[in-house]
Nucleic acid binder design. Structure first.
Lengths: 150, 150
DNA sequence: GCCGTAGGTCGATGGAGTCCATAGCTCAGA
DNA sequence: TCTGAGCTATGGACTCCATCGACCTACGGC
């Protein structure tokens, strides 16, 4: 993991569909060398995968909300987690310090669907209550933080 | 935007580095046809880009936190936004309904750095107070929601 | 000093990306 | 019903890329 690896990661975070030849030109190595480095980064799990970044609005998922979950005392956290995992609307899920055990990012098409989702989560065994905040607009998301190429 | 486009989007959200030839095989079209469709999806902004999904821990950014910002009454929201935008640690930023105007996802290396970041945000003109919750673990992030290929 | 290893370049080749001409399909209007 | 426009697919051709193998160099341990 040297500065060239960091640059490769930065470049792939900017555009995951860059060709190896293009990456090679930008970091000043040959294409096979870049190929091997990227392969190792994938093998070690530093690069987990490559995702297309989509316009959710265009796909009919224009409503984004953050939901905090407060569990029942004595609830089985794994059950709650499994239930939430089974909901495709839940894009991200963090286990938190604090009163709210889980913090979810969810995406749905309409406020009505959000309501139904919240009801479903509240009905889940182990969930005591939820707190929902709706995003009026997304300023930015998943902005890559440049590696410190020192 | 038909069901083939939706499948292409799903496939690219799963693996943004899939070759056009591979996509073509999976959706049952020729490679040039897929090339043209993906190009149009990019041109219309439905696909905004392609990102490598990295292991932040491996890059020395093992601390994830969510920060809510409460603005001063009469604060200039754009100034606050610009200040936050200039902080590379802020990965995502939503403008929210409710008391907290902004909700941030931030990533830093250590709790000490998180403390410094919170202080910096609290010192920003227009910011009345912040509320920070630390993620103890990330269950999943940016999980693609399959398009309804009906 | 010699050898093993890690990691690089170079060259070759099979396959992919991409441009272009062409063919079907849908639909509006005579 | 026929025709022409427009869209979108296919197939061929050409260029470029991915990827493999062979070899080269730097470095550390014996």
């Amino acid at each position: 993991m040297d500065s060239i690896d960091l640059r490769l990661i930065d470049l792939l975070r900017e555009n995951a569909r860059s060709s190896y030849a293009e990456l090679a030109r930008k970091v000043g190595l040959s294409a096979p060398a870049v190929h091997e480095r990227v392969g190792k980064l994938e093998a070690t799990g530093t690069i987990r995968g490559y995702q297309a970044d989509v316009d959710h609005e265009a796909l009919g998922l224009g409503v984004t909300a953050l939901i905090g979950i407060i569990e029942d005392s004595g609830a089985d956290t794994d059950d709650v987690l499994a239930a939430v995992r089974a909901m495709p609307e839940v894009e991200s899920c963090y286990f938190m310090a604090g009163v709210e055990s889980y913090q979810l990012t969810v995406r749905v098409g309409t406020i009505a669907e959000l309501e139904q989702l919240i009801v479903r989560i509240n009905r889940t065994p182990g969930v005591a209550s939820t707190r929902t905040a709706i995003a009026l607009s997304t300023k930015w998301e998943n902005r890559p933080q440049p590696g410190v190429t020192s």
